[in-house]
């Protein structure tokens, strides 16, 4: 116990500041209603849906919750059920196996809700394009609000993407 506490004290706060200047990796597709913005201001629950990614994107998404990026400081946290979620974070090209699941997840999420598609695959199907197993990009299956580009996108980009979806941080 003492050693653990010592270590905690030695490290101090590890969280990095977020630079919100760069937003070119983020592409807003759908104008989110003002209501959504007002509601989800500082409390956002995310349900992550892996619709067939190579898990590269997942690695970066997991990094969001670590002490360095600490998405929780913005009130952004991951939940276990789409019923609790406000935002779906979808990765990968949607495979035929995951098509129904993705649609059902969208269906299960209470309104108002947002969808952020993460990674190049989500937009263009990336290297998987043309495969027999692919049903199409995410926006073919569910309405997408924001695309975050990158293969995989960095955690900071992800955070920017999510915050852009909420559209509450001023773009300078």
């Amino acid at each position: 116990m003492p050693t653990l506490l010592q270590k905690i004290l030695r490290v101090g706060i590890a969280t990095e500041q977020l630079d919100l200047a760069e937003t070119d990796v983020v592409q807003v597709v759908r104008q989110v209603e003002a209501k959504t913005r007002r509601l989800l201001g500082r409390s956002l629950a995310i349900r992550e849906v892996d619709a067939g990614s190579c898990n590269g994107c997942e690695l970066e998404i997991t990094a969001l919750t670590n002490p360095l990026y600490d998405s929780e400081r913005f009130g952004i946290h991951f939940v276990a059920s789409p019923r609790h979620a406000d935002l779906l974070l979808v990765t990968g090209p949607v495979t035929r196996h995951m098509e129904v699941a993705l649609r059902k997840t969208y269906e299960a999420t209470p309104d108002p809700k947002l969808v952020v598609a993460v990674g190049d695959c989500a937009k263009t199907c990336g290297v998987f394009k043309g495969s027999y197993a692919i049903a199409g990009s995410v926006d073919r299956i569910v309405p997408v609000d924001v695309f975050v580009a990158g293969c995989p996108p960095e955690p900071t980009d992800l955070l920017r993407g999510i915050l852009t979806a909420l559209d509450r941080w001023p773009k300078s």
Binding site: V11, G12, A14, S43, R73, G75
Partner: peptide, 21 residues
């Protein structure tokens, strides 16, 4: 060693839930 959400975060969550479908 995280910054963490402020202690009043649960109030914001409550407000959000009450407004959701």
């Amino acid at each position: 060693n995280r910054l963490g959400a402020p202690p009043w975060q649960p109030y914001l969550e409550l407000r959000k839930w009450l407004a959701k479908d």
